Amino acid sequence: MNVQSVQETARLKVDDADSEMPTIAVSGPWTLAQARLAEDLVETVSLPNAQNVTIELGGVTALDTAGTWLLHRLRAGLEFRGARVELANVEDRFAPLFAEIETHVPRQWKPRRTGISIVAGLEAIGRQAEILWKDAISVVSILGAFGIGLAAALFNPSRLRGTSILANFDRACRGAVPIVALMSFLIGLIIAQQGGFYLRQFGAETFVVDLVGVLVLREMGVLLTAIMVAGRSGSAYTAEIGSMKMREEIDALKVLGLEPVEILVIPRLMALMLALPLLTFIADIAALAGAAVVCWTYMGIPPEAFLQRLHEAVSMEELVVGLAKGPFMALIVGLIACAEGLKVGGSAESLGEKTTTSVVKAIFMVIVVDGLFAIFFSAMGI
């Protein structure tokens, strides 16, 4: 390559600019190295009266994709103003570039239709049904792997990762005791105050003990605890597993011949199933303590009378019914949290979206399962 070719620059000349049939002579190298100059030359072209424009390319000495895009933009701009544009004297070696650019022109943006359509509504319902079906499959697959892992642990207990289970139990249980106890204390206080306010009108404020005892032990204690665990531990599980998925640590476990479900999911599920019944019991005690405070200060029922009435109103069956729901709700929260974590993509946006989805789905399913348990126990006469 000689010095003259190195110093050669892109050039553009317009002949008969004011006529209806102007000619644009393009010459020199139209390559990436000349893109800044070539773009400035294209921007200077203004042919307001042009009807038929000829772009003369016989003087082009070098051409690459960048230069072809600029020439295509020049041609498209003239055609947009209503002119007919023809490329003349295109060398055979440059023709494939123009043909390739023509096939990769982005489509014109069109706004989505926002009108009401029966077909669009049915399509949206179908898409949501497909998403729900895939979510159900993923949860059931993790549940199956969890069952297989437990069955294998019965024959080989060393496969259970005791250290991991205890570490997750400590985080899910001990770390959640303050917030669970405080929230349950306030809930018991509110239920007792509201119940006593309305029952006092009928002279039956003593029955507020029955109301609080049955409601807290059977329903509210385990339900509120499961919701708080879903927001606290469930979101943490999704974020942890999702972060590992983003950093390809789960793929690394597979490469090492380790099963991610056995290492990441089973310890978390077992820890949560052990922690939730214990947290439920703490929540029951805290809620009853809050109710006792209100009954003493607001309705004049001393703690001794409160405990005596509570003993008469509720039985051990009420407590067992509430505690029996704990492991099942913990299993649901853990399954949803781990399933959403394994679906995280490679972006922070995906991690945030799946974490939010995990909490929402877990809370929804906890409420649904609590309702199913209520129907089942009522049918069984318990």
Rank of each mutant, 00 (worst) to 15 (best):
A152N: 13
K254I: 05
S378M: 13
T357Q: 14
L372G: 08
P106L: 13
A120P: 00
L154W: 12
W296V: 03
T280C: 11
E304P: 10
G234A: 04
R93I: 11
F281A: 14
H104A: 10
V321C: 05
A292K: 11
R75T: 12
Q128W: 12
M183D: 02
P48C: 11
Q193Y: 15
V314G: 02
W30R: 12
L310H: 08
T54C: 07
F155I: 14
V314Y: 08
L253T: 07
L278W: 08
M270N: 08
L47S: 05
P267Q: 04
S164A: 15
G300L: 02
G345H: 01
E100M: 15
R171D: 10
R174N: 15
A152C: 05
Q108H: 10
R159W: 09
V177N: 05
V366Y: 02
M270S: 10
G257L: 06
I336W: 01
H311D: 14
I24W: 02
L307T: 14
E79S: 14
V90T: 10
S164Y: 05
I332C: 08
G77Q: 09
A313D: 09
G346Q: 13
S235H: 07
S184E: 06
A35H: 09
L215F: 09
L351K: 07
I285R: 08
L211F: 04
P178E: 12
E249P: 01
F146G: 00
N52V: 15
I165L: 09
Q201T: 13
L143P: 00
P303G: 03
C295F: 09
L342C: 03
R247T: 15
G149S: 10
K134W: 03
G162T: 12
G162D: 02
I118F: 13
K254M: 09
R84A: 12
L223E: 04
I179Y: 13
M220Q: 06
F197P: 00
S117Q: 06
F185W: 11
S27T: 09
V359Y: 03
A35G: 02
R127T: 11
F155T: 15
W69D: 08
E130S: 13
E312D: 15
R81W: 01
I382A: 08
R159C: 03
N52M: 08
A324F: 15
F94N: 11
D135T: 10
G162P: 04
S138K: 10
E248V: 07
G195K: 05
E8P: 00
L264V: 06
S243D: 07
A167I: 09
F376D: 00
T297E: 12
G213D: 06
S235V: 07
G234Y: 05
L199Y: 11
P96W: 05
T357N: 13
E123C: 04
R112D: 12
H311V: 08
V359N: 03
T68E: 03
S27W: 00
G381D: 05
A33D: 12
T61Y: 00
S378F: 06
R200P: 01
R247D: 10
A313W: 10
L335Y: 00
V255N: 12
K13A: 14
V105W: 10
D370T: 11
P277K: 02
R200D: 10
W109K: 11
A374Y: 06
V216K: 01
